[in-house]
Design a protein around this nucleic acid. Structure first.
Length: 159
DNA sequence: GCCAACGTTGGC
DNA sequence: GCCAACGTTGGC
């Protein structure tokens, strides 16, 4: 069991989309960064929890929680020539890009970047590092508890 | 829309 | 295997 932070542009997939279909599995398509791929392919487990982070939007920050709900499998968008995430160097017998499905767990209040930056307990989080672009990053148990149980006040994550 | 930071590509 | 050029990310 590990914790994660996963960035999504809410114009494409937001926590509201997940909340609208709480029983649906959403494939986390479009990751084209090897480090983020390796996290999904090799390090995640079914049942892991992730902060759902809204990026490239008016108010970037944590907007909810989702759960990893599938094993790793090849991202189908890499094989489709008409898809924006098409990768001509990939092939079905040797896929480059792997993903997981996630499903809705909870919406939270928007925990914005400035508030996160103000917390000394969170200074090591990659999402707060200058110039960080990695869309999937690990979250330590202490960070998870501080945010989920503390800042967001979710009882089930109180320590 | 700007632009700094970063990852990837490809020529050599 | 170096590294300049390029494309992308993402906060502001």
């Amino acid at each position: 069991m590990q914790y994660w932070l996963m960035k999504s542009e809410p114009d494409e997939v937001s926590i509201a989309h997940l909340a609208a279909e709480p029983d649906r599995s959403f494939p986390w398509t479009g990751v084209r960064n090897y480090q983020a791929r390796n996290f999904m392919r090799d390090a995640m487990h079914v049942g892991d929890l992730a902060f759902f982070y809204h990026s490239s939007c008016a108010e970037p920050g944590i907007a909810g929680i989702c759960e990893i709900c599938s094993a790793a499998y090849p991202d189908p968008t890499q094989f489709s020539a008409v898809d924006r995430y098409y990768d001509p160097k990939s092939s079905p017998d040797k896929p480059r890009w792997w993903l997981r499905d996630v499903r809705f767990v909870a919406r939270t209040r928007l925990l914005g970047l400035p508030e996160m930056r103000a917390c000394s307990a969170l200074t090591a989080m990659p999402v707060l590092a200058r110039g960080n672009r990695l869309s999937i990053t690990p979250v330590t148990p202490a960070e998870w508890q501080f945010i989920a149980g503390g800042l967001l006040g979710l009882n089930r994550f109180r320590g």
